[in-house]
Nucleic acid binder design. Sequence first.
DNA 1: TGATCGTGTCATACC
DNA 2: CTGGTATGACACGAT
Length: 649
Amino acid sequence: MQKAKKYFTEGLIQLTILLSLIGVRVDIDSYLSGYYSPLIEINVGPSSAYTQTPFHNLRDTLDGYSVHPKCPELDYFFASRRLLDEVRTLGSPRFPTQLSAWLVHQVSAADQADCGPSTNNNNNSSSSSSGLQSPGDGVGDDREHLPDSGQEVYQTTHELGHGPCSAGACVFLKEASENDVKEEEEPAPITQHTHSSTLEQESLFEDITALSNPVIHHPPPIDIDQHWSNLLSLSVTDLDDLDSLVADTDITSAISQNVSLHDAMVTSAGVSGVASERGEARLVTQQGTLFRLESIGSSHSDVSPGMALGLAALPFASVCNLTGNESSHSALGGCLDEAVFDQINQLGLEGLDSMDSQLMSSFGNIAPHALEDLDSDSGLSLESSSGGPISPGSSEMSSSSSSSYCEDECGATGYSSDADLVPSKGIAGYTTAWSPFDLSESVWHDHSYSSTAFLNQPAVTLHHKGIKEEPLSDSDEPTLDERDMSRDELRARAMYIPFSVLQIVNMPVEEFLEVLDGHGFSPEQVNLLRDIRRRGKNKLAAQNCRKRKLDAITGLQEEVEMLQAQRDRLLRDKQVTAKTMGAVSQQIKQLTRDVLARLRDGSGQPLNPERFTLQCGANGRVVVQPLRRPTVTTSAGNKTDKRKKDKRQ
DNA sequence: TGATCGTGTCATACC
DNA sequence: CTGGTATGACACGAT
């Protein structure tokens, strides 16, 4: 459940990002902090979150019993938070964008039986249902309930029902709300929530199934407003904008687009690298926009929990993609501006269209001998690491020095999601579906080896060490896909290795050994597999190492600054103390002179301050003592004289 | 054009 | 012994 929660949290973050793009500010910090609060304190140490957690450890932690302090999910969380902050810093741009139906359906299993519209006592559901029946009245209700419920808002706009994001967003929102509800009902620690993973997953799938029905559902008899008030806090100005939007919205049309979640699920699962699903869910040529995914021949009954998780794992962009099925892709263009998605497109989704199974045949034309000598600098994109949650933030960071953060965020942990999708016992299925272009891999590319190929830019030659390596091919010009592939990928493909680099690197060692033994690989293939795995592991290790080094440098710099400040402070204190001491000394001298001036010697003359001084005894008595200026010299002279006399004697 | 930075890879030590 | 990790060193491309 920890994984599922992470996905839902991610979905919430992505929803927030999307809302931020249209000017709606959503504050989920409280929710996130509440969810991750036990983890934040763990992550105080430098590089604590950078160390990748081995997949087997992560598997254990994903069971929900504990969260490893070095769990890379922390990185992802912080990256998400950082991304959220960055998005917020962009302000509230008012794009000419209409975002459709952010309806929150609280669906219970019982509600699936009678999915017909009905009234509810709950504010949330009542407003949504009323919005369906009579949008105008519903809006009025919302406005009335708004001050009472705090931040309860129903965001609907004209285009929204067509918006692909709406469906996925509903899933995320709803699940998040359910989680929140459960947390309020049972204020148990996170570890307890994780134990109920199966139940929550089942409820999720039931909700998804229910969402496929365009009819508004009844919320459970739980005060959703309270949860949403905790979950979403919208500024007053945004609320006003939303009210104006809601006022003239045909919610019915918007909600009618909530269907096709199943298709979306299947599509997402196909994108997430399940080779077996590729035959069913294939990607359509993007034609300028990347948000076209089409699900073909996917039966809803085939939706498995793993696939559902795959949907949950799909981030913002993917959610937009998966909802683009069934005539909704055009609506997406109206849903959000191209300008908005241009940046999203740069996240690395350009490679989606290349995820065609025909790649295998095309690459089969590459002579193995042309690639077998390729050596290092393969430019692996292991950071994409398999199905780790893909988010705009992760790709956004790829261009900065902190790019490797996102890499680690799903680095070794990626196996938890992607490798789970890989049928460990049915690896033979990959023999015909070589899948180097996992969605995550495309999105998480942080290197310059990729992303240009899909933009039809001039060829990017693979850098190689020259001494050790040979050119890829003297005669054959590499295709766009070839250029986008790392060297290890090319080598693996040339050697007819039916596994992607990600799979090779991220699969557990037991499975890896089984692969080596059970597939009849030649020694060359085995060596290549081992090399690919070793390089991939070491690549991640190097990234972590560098991040730790940077952290150490940063920490030392901060410590230096702190020590310098402390030194300056101590120097200032010393100066102040010296001044104080000087002033006190002057006062004592003055008092001594005054006292001595009032004293008289035996002849009735005032005591000379040059010859006498005052000594304060331990008992508090003040004694006048004569000054003995040459005492030291005289005593020394006496001693020398005595020594001379002793020697003479 | 050299400097700098980011990244991948190798070699090696260590667990 | 093997697999994995950490890290210094090197090479390479990009800026």
